[in-house]
Simulated scan of single mutants.
Amino acid sequence: MNPLVIIPARGGSKGIPYKNIKPLQGKPLIYYAIDAARCITDDIHICISTDDDKIIKTVEDYGIDVPFKRPDSLATDTAGTYEVLLHALNHYEQRGESIDVVILLQTTSPFRTGKHVEEAFKLYHPGIDMVVSVKETDSNPYYVCFEENKDGFLHVSKGEGGYTRRQDCPPVYEYNGAIYIINPNSLKSMPLNKFTKRVKYVMDREHSLDLDTMMDWHVAEYMINTGVIVSQI
């Protein structure tokens, strides 16, 4: 199977300035994603999609060749991940490569390990659209999520099952943003949110941490310093 690992790394970032190459415990954030990718494939199959020269230099210093510079139209605040994935996939296919599976690893999940990616990859087969990493949600719609009815009164969001304990509720999952293992034919047919044949790969809350704000960043540093996370590889 010929994989293509795509790691999007736009230069602009508002929540955490230059987060993709900001050092986390002395190591640029993007290196964590590259290390996870290297556990399942060779460097030649790792694609860093970026518009930024500083990021290109940082990645090349780590031994990864950057095959192209992302066009400005795909480097704005409104540019979607779907278009970025298609752009990268098209680049490799135009080079004559036949890609069997696309793996999206976002830089903002530093505690996703190579082992996680390996385990998720084992769940993939060409008969599905995607394997996606998830965590069990804290906001279970059978228990703690409420909506207003037409009279303005709150009612349980998903059904009136009468659950009195959280542990009795059906499990509900949310994407954690760490791993997407995608069928390239499905990708070329529709955006990821239109996929119907999705298989979950469940991760714990600690390894699911997603860095979106500086508060998230400080939490990550705390988790490393206190030993909550022992290894990031």
Rank of each mutant, 00 (worst) to 15 (best):
D42N: 14
L74K: 06
F68E: 07
I16R: 06
D42L: 08
D35W: 03
T108W: 03
D53W: 11
I30W: 00
I64H: 06
Y82L: 12
G26L: 08
D61L: 13
T58L: 02
D61S: 14
L104Y: 03
S98M: 09
A9C: 05
A88E: 01
G80R: 11
G96H: 05
C39D: 05
G63K: 06
E93D: 04
P67Y: 06
L29V: 04
G11C: 06
G26I: 12
D100C: 09
R70Y: 01
D35Q: 10
I64F: 07
E60N: 05
P28E: 05
H91V: 12
R70F: 00
I44D: 12
G80K: 13
S109A: 13
P110G: 06
Y32W: 10
Q94R: 15
H91C: 07
T76V: 09
D43C: 11
S49C: 15
D51E: 12
I55C: 07
K27N: 09
A33P: 00
Y82P: 09
D100L: 06
Y92A: 04
I48S: 03
I99K: 03
S98H: 10
I40V: 14
R38Q: 13
G96I: 07
D53A: 15
Q94A: 10
C47E: 04
C39T: 05
K19Y: 04
D35I: 03
Y32P: 02
D42S: 14
L105N: 02
S98A: 11
I16C: 03
I16V: 15
L74N: 06
I103C: 01
H91N: 12
Y18M: 13
G80F: 06
I16T: 06
D42P: 00
R10W: 02
R38C: 09
G63M: 09
Y92T: 03
I21H: 01
I55P: 02
V101N: 04
D51V: 14
D100T: 03
E60D: 04
K57V: 06
R95A: 14
E83L: 14
D100E: 10
I56T: 12
D52Q: 08
A79W: 02
D51F: 09
A9V: 04
